[in-house]
Design a binder for these strands. Structure first.
Ligand code: FES
Ligand code: FES
Lengths: 138, 138
DNA sequence: CTATATATGACTTAATTTGTCAAGTATTAA
DNA sequence: TTAATACTTGACAAATTAAGTCATATATAG
């Protein structure tokens, strides 16, 4: 059904929250939780993934928290999605993943739709940036 | 990760198979199985869904099977996807499904991306028809 | 030193996807 | 009429993935 996972929704909500914040002082998991009511421990996991993917920076200890590591204009939505749930891979029609497709790539008549879908999804996600969202611009 | 389910892949493969067939004599599950190696009982389930959604017709008894019910030009890929797995609903930000979104639709800054994604996916799937696939046309 | 916060990794639970099966019904052909 | 073929229905089981929790460790401000 292609539904958006909570990982994605929560991850993006957290990033938007950080983007709306002052950009100087770190925002703790608790802070984000109070704004968005995302399950705390789950949110923490997601933030760790965002950090490992270079999207946020963490400050440990008292008064610590998370800060965006880049300019929101440089953060594609696709980066965020990839960070929290791995590459956006709508199809698996490759030689390596034989079991995930019909195994007849060359003659496969269905493949083109899935490829097209894969492409438009990736296009939208990589054209939009975090900045677009926080500024309400097209 | 937004991956395409086997339901979708198998469903479309079956429809393409029926579309490639003569259009007169019914094609049995066994026939489709021999062409595509889709788990038989699973395939059967999918065909029933396709029938219930008016995309194929079934003929019972010996020499029975399935036939397309419409002109492939009138069958959108979206119809097939909807038939085998219900509506393509990338987001659930409605009043009824409060738990599936951030519950702050009006002020939600993340919603626009998901809506856009939802729209492009539905657009691609409803612009392409079964005929496009079997004819290798754009 | 203490309170606050993140780091890590294992773990549990719930939901969904994927696939199987048995018993029943309809149809054709011999 | 009978045997063989093939769809119908509904329930079920297994496998995978998503969603969420927790204990323990580490770091820092004050
Ligand atoms: S090549 Fe992937 S479904 Fe056919
Ligand atoms: S309204 Fe759906 S995520 Fe915010």
């Amino acid at each position: 059904m292609l539904k958006i996972s909570t990982r994605c929704r929560y991850g993006l909500l957290a990033m938007v929250e950080l983007g709306q914040h002052d950009g100087q002082t770190p925002m703790s998991v608790q802070d984000i939780y109070q704004k968005q009511r995302i399950p705390k421990f789950y949110l923490q996991q997601l933030l760790v993934k965002l950090r490992r993917n270079g999207l946020v920076e963490s400050v440990r200890g008292s008064k610590g928290g998370f800060v965006l590591k880049k300019d929101p204009k440089q953060i594609k939505i696709l980066d965020i999605v990839k960070a929290v749930e791995g590459p956006v891979q709508l199809i698996f029609c490759t030689k390596k993943a034989k079991d995930r497709c019909c195994r007849r790539i060359k003659e496969c008549l269905t493949r083109p739709v899935w490829v097209e879908l894969h492409e438009v999804v990736n296009k939208v996600l990589s054209e939009r940036t975090l900045h677009d969202l926080t500024q309400n611009l097209p």
